[in-house]
Design a protein around this nucleic acid. Structure first.
Lengths: 245, 245
DNA sequence: CTGTCAATATTTATTACTAATTTAGGAGAA
DNA sequence: TTCTCCTAAATTAGTAATAAATATTGACAG
């Protein structure tokens, strides 16, 4: 499920270290005291090193002989990595950096998704359409619980990216997913939520018709509406609002 | 420099494994015979495990008890990771998958960069403008060698992403970089290459003026021209062509 | 002042062993 | 038969101690 093995002591060690670094507890450029951490986290040196290897693979730390193991500059973090993205949200309560990340996330969505639907409209196969229709269907089942609806929403957007038949764009799923997940944390399943299905159906129709411009317009409308809804909730701190992307 | 520690025996092991998997030598879903690999690569079991940890962090393998360590489905690979991207090109000669990846890369650029310059035009600081101007300056020095020109080109586009002040978009650099690097391998520094500076200057001017629409248009023109040039070279296999993005 | 060489400290890699876990498969019950 | 639970084997996960490699530092010679 998760990209790296999250099982066992090792996984916990990775998470603990990641949270410390992403939370700023261990600042950029700091050299880690391996022995101290070893005792602190209660793991062996080998386990600690394997954990650091995972973080190194994500550009967060670098271990060099003599100089020691140190935290790399934030500019080197693989912020597009699914784990790094998740850790940032898990880390702490809503901070300033958190808010900034959220803005960035939204901007990426607005960048990627309209372009993606254009390609999807041009390349979608019948199988893609089936997947999209199924996701839309699932979104319509309001009685299956809020978690179900969110999952269906995500599935729809994932299917959309898959329909581009561009492997790289498909991987942007991680970003879209993070954005959606957090959005959901704010807009926690209000009973008065606006029905997200119609807007999504408009997108699907355009994709089915192979009309890139209409698809893009529909997607922009969808994102724009979601953004305004979110803003409204944020501003008034009122729990009524949107129910979907 | 590289995200994971590439030094020593360990780095080599990671690369070797990565190439085997990305090259299809070890197919998706295959379970790895750790002991066999250990002897084959001539490393200890621990070192092998640490290498696999790096690959696990990039979504390429998963190690589960009893079931063994196996190659994950390609859909799980972190294709947006700089290393994974690089390994794919390093792996083998120009294959069909390679060509497909190249197309995907180009599409991502066309998606990201026009949107990025819009943001850059709105948010660029004076420092950003200085960096952009410096990169443009460097591009103009035709006598400094082809490698220098390519590096300057890259620097320009990197500075552009930085000017968006969106950390996530900034990380897309990896993708842009891969695209540029490979483009360069095809368009190997023709002496008759078209001067890339004017098109880039148009972009810079629009960004300086804070005109998002003009900036986007200029970037689209730039990408479009580069794409057509590349296509022409590809089609006619003629070495004359573009000299910049 | 500069470059080479060696001392030194610290990480990386090896070896060998133990522990934890998970799934396959069988036993027994419904 | 089929489902559940339990046992057992297989394999990764983790520990610890040691050896090797390598980068930094300082000293010394050119």
């Amino acid at each position: 499920m998760t990209p790296y093995a999250r099982r066992g002591v090792h996984g916990q060690t990775v998470e603990a270290l990641a949270h410390r670094i992403l939370g700023g507890e261990i600042p950029e450029g700091a050299t880690l005291d391996l022995v101290a951490l070893q005792g602190e986290l209660d793991v062996s040196l080998t386990a600690l090193r394997e954990s650091l290897k995972v973080l190194a693979a994500k550009g967060m730390v670098d271990a060099r002989q003599k100089r020691g193991t140190f935290v790399r500059a934030r500019a080197d973090w693989h912020l597009l990595d699914a784990d790094v993205l998740r850790w940032q949200f898990e880390g702490g309560r809503t901070t300033e950096a958190d808010r900034s990340l959220l803005r960035d996330l939204a901007e990426v969505r607005v960048t990627i998704e309209p372009a993606a639907v254009r390609l999807a409209a041009e390349r979608r196969t019948d199988a893609d359409l089936v997947a999209l229709a199924a996701a839309l269907e699932a979104m319509g089942q309001h009685d299956a619980g809020p978690a179900h609806a969110v999952e269906a929403d995500l599935t729809f957007h994932r299917a959309l990216l898959a329909a581009t038949h561009n492997e790289l764009l498909e991987r942007m799923e991680m970003v879209i997913e993070s954005g959606l997940a957090h959005r959901d944390r704010i807009v926690h399943s209000s009973p008065h939520s606006r029905d997200p299905v119609p807007a999504h159906r408009t997108v699907l129709d355009a994709v089915r018709d192979g009309d890139p411009s209409a698809a893009e317009a529909a997607m922009r409308a969808l994102l724009d509406q979601a953004g305004r809804d979110l803003e409204r909730i944020h501003g008034t701190d009122d729990t009524k609002g949107t129910g979907g992307t």
